[in-house]
Amino acid sequence: MSSLSEAIALARSEGRKATGLFVTAGFPDADSTDAVLDALVAGGADFIELGMPFSDPLAEGPPIQRSSERALRHGATMSATLDTALRFRSRHATPLVLMGYYNPVLQYGLGNFCTDARSSGVDGLIIPDLPPEEAKPLADAAAATGLDMIFLIAPNTSDERVATIDELSSGFVYAVSVTGVTGGQLSNFESTEAYLSRVSAVVKKNAVLVGFGIRSHEDAVRLTKHTDGFIVGSALVSLVEELWDAPMSVSERSSAIAKMVADLRVGH
């Protein structure tokens, strides 16, 4: 069992929903990502998604777009992202997943990327513009190095396709809560619940975690009725943006981030 699957299983055994947090590497600047990650662990994150900045993040809403632009303005590179992962791994055991668009990974070289990511302590990959049809080269390289490959499903994904994606995924299956970009509004709750209930019945091999548009503990409680955990990205990124634009000390910022994570958690 991978560290990621273990962390999700541990949360379940403790009667909790697994809590995943997304933040962009190199954001709010190259030197501050580490402090954000430490605060996420302090707040009780079960795993972390570290975003690989990209110039054209087409599934992202404005907050994550801005974080990516800001990181690139500060000179973010793939090597710097992997260094961030390596430093994180030297401080924490919390599972770390890299999330980002395919082209920077492709240009780095799929085999080298997986090898370097794994040796930097990365546990898995989420590539939102890489559906299973196009993913074989990367999925093979990921499997060869022991990285989990997490695919996404959406409310309009057929049962048959959900089953296939479950088969191809490891770590967990990422259920996108709504048809939309990250940070959007959660839509009609009944239809979302029906979708998540349908998906949780179809997915056999993996845990199902839900993400996109979750801002609060209440959102998390509602969306995890049929799932094993949840992921918060845009709300955290917006908070980090706010905290770093305000005149505050590092410890004040860290406490605010840790508090947000602690408040989000579902179950005891």
Binding site: A59, D129, P131, E134, A154, N156
Partner: peptide, 9 residues
């Protein structure tokens, strides 16, 4: 087809 899963259908 390098697109988010939502657009596959």
């Amino acid at each position: 087809r390098f697109i988010p899963e939502i657009l596959l259908p």
